[in-house]
Simulated scan of single mutants.
Amino acid sequence: MKAAPTIGGDSRVARVPAAPKMRCRTNSRRGLTDLSGPSYPPVEAACRVLEVLRAVNDLRIAKINVVHEITGIPKPTVVRMLETLMAQGYVARDNMCGGYRVTHKVQDLASGYDGVNRVIETARPFCIDLTRRINWPIGLGVPDGDAVAIKFWTGTISPWAHTNTVLGLRPDFHNSAMGRAYLAFCSREERERRIEALVNESGEPFTPQEKTSLRTILARARMDGFAIRNPRTPPYRTSTIGLPLRENGEVRAVISVSVYRTAIRPHELYPKVIEPALKTVADIEAALAFINNSNPSLPNETRAEMEPGF
């Protein structure tokens, strides 16, 4: 990969390699949700404009010859692309510093991409890999009001998925594995606030006894490192394990694994399901830490906002 030094420092901006040639296809592989398999060949001009914008963003003040060295794009083309970006308001010519710089408008490009989306995007290839290794469906969820919103599910590639409608479900906080995993590992203040707001199956606020029972369950989950769904709630033929996904020491998402009770013996559950899931969570958290360390300017509140679970 070609790289060139930036202005006033040793950091280098790598040129993104050209995408391989491919035939047009109308559908991606079943269950594939990563960004590496586009259906159509890329528009070369669009790729080059993004290369130029990325280079200007990294350089802070970009000169035409340096953008050319970084991207390999001919200088006349660089000029035309910079002028186009200026016309759209994303780049400005800075005559004081003698180069080009990005404007505040580039922030609009990230307005639809919050920390939750970033964490899910980071986690889902790991979840796909886990399902391919253990065959059971994996869920990713985040807190959403009084329940957990499932943002991603690998049931489409699991040979043992018990339903294909999981993305429409909203697991609660006190019975579901996802909800229990979140409550067990979130801050004490948030945990108590959510427990005080819980209602039972009769629609009544939790009694003191119900609150004490739930706190005991959550304490055990913190000791184990995972939570298990209330076995007295449907679907009765499955068991679900929930695990917290943390970033910067805080729970950003929850992950779940569902198995048929009759398909796996109790003593096999930990080595065959829970242990691989814990390892996957550790890998995801390591990836998030690497991303954060690679982007030291990323605000803490933006670095962490997602939650998977099931």
Rank of each mutant, 00 (worst) to 15 (best):
S213P: 04
G155D: 11
T207P: 01
R180I: 07
A181Q: 07
A184H: 07
E190R: 08
P205T: 03
T216R: 12
N200R: 10
T156H: 13
E204P: 05
R170A: 15
S158Q: 12
T156Q: 06
S176Q: 01
E189G: 05
N175D: 13
S187P: 04
S176W: 11
T207R: 07
I195Y: 12
R194M: 11
R188Q: 06
Y182Q: 13
T207L: 06
R194W: 12
P171S: 07
P159Q: 03
T156E: 10
S202W: 15
L214M: 04
F185A: 09
I217L: 14
K211F: 07
T163P: 04
K211Q: 12
A219E: 15
E210T: 01
C186Q: 01
I157H: 06
R193N: 15
L198R: 01
D172R: 08
G155I: 01
A161I: 14
G168I: 12
E196Q: 12
N175W: 08
A197F: 14
D172Q: 03
R188Y: 02
R193G: 05
P159Y: 11
A184T: 13
E196F: 02
S202Q: 12
D172F: 13
A219H: 05
L198N: 05
F173R: 04
A219M: 10
S187C: 07
E210P: 04
R188D: 15
W153S: 09
E189C: 00
G155L: 13
T216M: 08
I217Y: 00
W153Y: 11
A177Y: 08
L167S: 15
R191G: 01
V166H: 10
A161S: 15
S176T: 06
P171K: 12
I195T: 10
T165D: 14
E210N: 07
E192S: 00
S176E: 12
T212D: 14
T156S: 14
A161N: 08
E204L: 10
G155N: 02
F185V: 00
T156L: 05
T154W: 05
Q209T: 14
L183H: 03
M178A: 13
T207A: 05
F185G: 09
A161M: 06
T207W: 05
R180M: 14
F185Y: 01
S213C: 04
P208A: 02
T163S: 15
P208C: 03
E201N: 00
A197K: 10
I157G: 07
E210I: 13
E190W: 12
M178Q: 09
G203C: 02
E204G: 03
T156W: 00
T163K: 02
K211G: 08
H162A: 06
Y182W: 15
G203F: 10
R215W: 09
T216P: 00
Q209I: 13
A184Y: 08
N164H: 02
V199K: 11
S202P: 05
A184W: 00
L198A: 01
I195L: 10
